[in-house]
Structures are given as structure tokens and as C-alpha cells.
Nucleic acid binder design. Structure first.
Lengths: 134, 134
DNA sequence: ATATGTGCATTACTGTAGTGATGCACGTGG
DNA sequence: CCACGTGCATCACTACAGTAATGCACATAT
């Protein structure tokens, strides 16, 4: 169990809650493939100390990530990246339905900004392009 | 000033704040063209009474909508739908940049759900199709 | 068994979002 | 001018998110 040398960084005064910043960064690492299933994450204590925040803050973030199926917690051992393939329990349609409200919020904002359909889709594709490093 | 007969509906126990529900519904009405520039909205008192909430809750919602450039308040008269064309102050690129974070959040969630690029774009297009009634 | 590493449960403090009650200021119509 | 309809400012209350301090439970290595 060598130090994975994961570099987390937070800005406590960015308005975004600390635990949310942790969640987003772990998610990004997993989605992009830099963290693979079975990989260990920094222990709650280590990470809390290095970021100078309370352990519970990290713990809550890890807990949320476990509920989301991203991590698996193993008491006495540590947090580990979960298998990514299990969640195919839900069909594509169901997952799309789950995603829909989030997309809707964003798209309506785009319409409100008076952007055309192609202009909105261009933003979507640009973001997809950035994150298909897998 | 006839009754515009606008039908707002809220579910106080839906988790979504009341003022946010008002904002979203007004936005939807304006974006879809059912409310046109110059149209009057229900007065704060009337709407508050019909929805059985406090005036201030409606007032806050309207205030936010004014900041967003959707409505114009006229004291002693009421709230009126603002002109939609003014905001072309910002270039397409700027408006796309403003939209980007929202889209990004949604798209990353889609990737996390293990949806393919076309599957995500399909959701976007479906929503765009629903809202181009203009 | 014991020491030391894990994560967890409990409890508490604090800030802020959300909502509300009340009285005031502005505009319009008589 | 006066009455009535607008929206607004102020203050206050409540619930909950976010963070933290502390002690406990489990797993592993010696």
C-alpha cells in the first residue's frame, strides 16, 4: 500500500462546501480513469490532516461517495474504488431518466440566455470531448 | 387589466423551495412564449393568497426574476414581463461560457451513470425538442 | 494480547437559506 | 385630496447544511 500520491486541493472560501469539493474531485479521478477499481484512497485521517479540515468532513464525503457506488469502505482497512460495472442494473432508459432533470435545468438556462439549439449542443459536445480520456 | 388566468401550482413538500418553484414556472412561461413582453403578472398579494404562502416569498421570487432580467417591477402598477431582446449585450461565446458550468455538472453526472456520448446528447435533444414551441 | 492503523457514531456549534408578520412608500383612479 | 392597489423594507423565527471534537468498533501485524 504505497502512497498513491493523490493530490487533492480545496479552497475553503470558494463558496463550494469542502465535502462537495472532495466528492467532485474523487468523481473526476474515477470517471477519467486515473483511479481504477481496487485502488486505495488516502485514509480519512491522512487526508483530513493534509487538507487541514476535520476528519468527519472527509468521512461524510466518502460516505456519500459510497452511497453513489463510487467507493467501497472497508473498516480497519480503508476506502477503495468500487467496481464500476456492477451498476448496469439500471437500463439505459432509466439512467437517462435519472439524468434528465439535471440536463433540463441546464438547457432551460441556455434557452433563457437566448442560445440556439446548435449553440447549446456545441457546449455539451465540447465538454464530452474533454472528458473521454478513458 | 383582465385576469391573465395564469395557473401557478406549487408543492410545498416537494423539497424544492417555494420561491424557486415560482421562478422556474415564470421562466418556463416566458421562454415558451406563453407570456410575452409587456404582459402583466399576478400581483404579489393575489398570488400569495391563491397559493397560500406569504407575500414576501412571492416578492423574493419576483425580485430574483427582475435581477435575471425576466421581469420589470413597476411600483403601484405591478410586475410586467421585460423585453427579451436587450440581453444581446453578451456575445454568443460569453453566454456559452456562462452556461458551461451548469452543463458540465449535468454531463459529468451522465458519464458517471456510464452513459455514452450519444445517449447523453439524446437527452439534451429531447429536452430541446420539447421547448422550441416558440 | 496489544499496539496501531482503519472508518463510524454521537453530539454540538454556527451560519445561512427559506419563510413569515407587520408596517411603510409609491402610483393610480376617484 | 383621498382611498386603494401596487411592491418594498425591516425584523424575526425555523430548519437544516456544514463543520467540528471526542470517544468507540473493527481489522491487521507483531
Amino acid at each position: 500500500m504505497q502512497s498513491s500520491e493523490l493530490s487533492f486541493s480545496i479552497s475553503p472560501s470558494s463558496g463550494v462546501p469542502i465535502y462537495r469539493q472532495i466528492i467532485d474531485q474523487v468523481n473526476a479521478l474515477v470517471v477519467s480513469g486515473r483511479l481504477k477499481p481496487g485502488d486505495a484512497l488516502p485514509s480519512i485521517r491522512k487526508l483530513a490532516e493534509s487538507l487541514e479540515v476535520n476528519m468527519m468532513t472527509i468521512s461524510k464525503a466518502y460516505a456519500r461517495l459510497e452511497v453513489d457506488g463510487v467507493l467501497t469502505r472497508v473498516r480497519g482497512v480503508g476506502m477503495v474504488v468500487a467496481e464500476p460495472d456492477i451498476p448496469t442494473a439500471a437500463s439505459v432508459k432509466e439512467r437517462q431518466a435519472e439524468l434528465r432533470p439535471l440536463i433540463e435545468q441546464a438547457v432551460l438556462r441556455g434557452l433563457q440566455l437566448n442560445l440556439s439549439n446548435p449553440q447549446i449542443i456545441a457546449v455539451v459536445e465540447s465538454i464530452l470531448r474533454e472528458n473521454r480520456n478513458e
